[in-house]
Design a binder for these strands. Structure first.
Ligand code: MN
Ligand code: MN
Ligand code: MN
Ligand code: MN
Lengths: 222, 222
DNA sequence: ATATATTTTTAGACAACCCTAAAAATATCT
DNA sequence: AGATATTTTTAGGGTTGTCTAAAAATATAT
């Protein structure tokens, strides 16, 4: 009797999931509204509806958290999103900055068998093209030791394993700098003035990274 | 300013397209309602809306035809449907009776680049897993000489190139008979009573096909 | 602690898509 | 042609998800 969720409902669940991924604290109506690019009034309506369906725990004026079911659903949508992104990049040859929007649509396709087969076809990838972990069918994330590039000292180096910012403009900027997942980055100098870094990329070209860029690069120390 | 069509609108256009594929005559409200599994009243509402948007030519009490734009849109949705079905069978290993429903969802994903790349990835297929022609990006169908198996005489043979019925139960029935696209079928006997055929399949096993089955098999004479 | 600012909810409305029942138009039969 | 049957449209209404504006609750500041 429990009919499948609408795309909108799935997107709300994902928004809450992402908003409190670490803290698991209740998420403000306004925060959800910002994620969903909608009005606070619409969020209130939807929270009532999702609470009704036991997908969120919601108390008026106190924000919303995901219920166990809601959390499972959100994780499953994220799994689908990241598997599709991986498909688009690895099989169809898209670049990492092009895939997010398309995956936003594909993630709502409703077929367990499809996702199982896609996962298999891709060789059971553990990370998507942005370095984000792909949850397994039972919702487990493969965590990884990682730190932010800005935290490295001069003469230390790391391998890029992920990005915190997923905007097209940021990813294109990295393309221009010849920085991709797997690229090794060695810190040569740090400016005392603006914290910008002179780094050498893949043991070759030296480039300058602003602190704003460095803060969005996730690396494994090497 | 012309926002993308909704899934429902696309499905209506496809319904009209399929209903008058050969004749191009105006399609009855009731016929569309049957295709869409909805009420005649809903169809009337939608026809007004689509006529407003210049996607159909509609005159009350006289049915609807697709406008050139509507026809282009319908063809593009069919192209997407059939490319996705091909992907599901050829790359993900689905069986031909499993893919239609999933493709009904995938066909609405909105990205020209995606379809271009998918087409290329699949090697520019001309026919889908059911033998239906895949229109090119500019809407051209690759037609083929074909006839219905029932039209063959005893001792004549043909290669299966398509099926007229796409129901899961029919396709599974063919699976059971070891009949797939490309299978060669030789007529051994025709019953004068019920027109059922004794045929030999792939130069091997003899099976009996009811006329109802034979009428739904499209073959190229061999 | 009271006033002010911010956040959230409620109220009322709209668009898309659907429904059933009744009315109107068209088609068929004798 | 006139009566009857069928098809189609209109009328009125429901749900989902959206919006703006006003009201209510909560948080912040003096
Ligand atoms: Mn993404
Ligand atoms: Mn990603
Ligand atoms: Mn199909
Ligand atoms: Mn098909």
């Amino acid at each position: 009797m429990t009919r499948p969720l609408t795309q909108t409902e799935e997107n709300y669940l994902k928004a809450i999931y992402k908003a409190n991924e670490k803290t698991k604290a209740a998420v403000n109506t306004n925060t959800i509204a910002a994620y969903m690019k909608t009005s606070a009034a619409s969020v209130t309506d939807m929270m009532k509806k999702l609470a009704q369906k036991d997908l969120v725990i919601y108390e008026r004026y106190k924000g919303a958290r995901l219920s166990p079911t809601g959390s499972k659903t959100a994780t499953s949508v994220i799994r689908k999103h990241r598997l599709w992104e991986t498909f688009l990049v690895q099989k169809l040859g898209f670049s990492w900055e092009e895939v997010h929007e398309i995956a936003e649509e594909l993630e709502h396709i409703n077929s367990d068998k499809l996702i199982t087969k896609l996962d298999e076809y891709l060789g059971f990838p553990k990370y998507d093209p942005h370095g984000d972990p792909i949850p397994s069918a039972d919702g487990k994330f493969m965590l990884r030791e990682q730190m932010i590039l800005s935290q490295l000292d001069v003469d230390e180096s790391g391998i890029l394993v992920g990005v915190k910012n997923h905007e097209t403009s940021f990813l294109s900027h990295l393309n221009n700098l010849n920085i991709a997942l797997g690229t090794s980055i060695l810190i040569k100098e740090r400016s005392g003035f603006d914290k910008s870094l002179k780094v050498s990329v893949s043991k070759g070209a030296e480039v300058v990274l602003t602190d704003m860029v460095a803060k969005n690069l996730l690396i494994r120390k090497s």
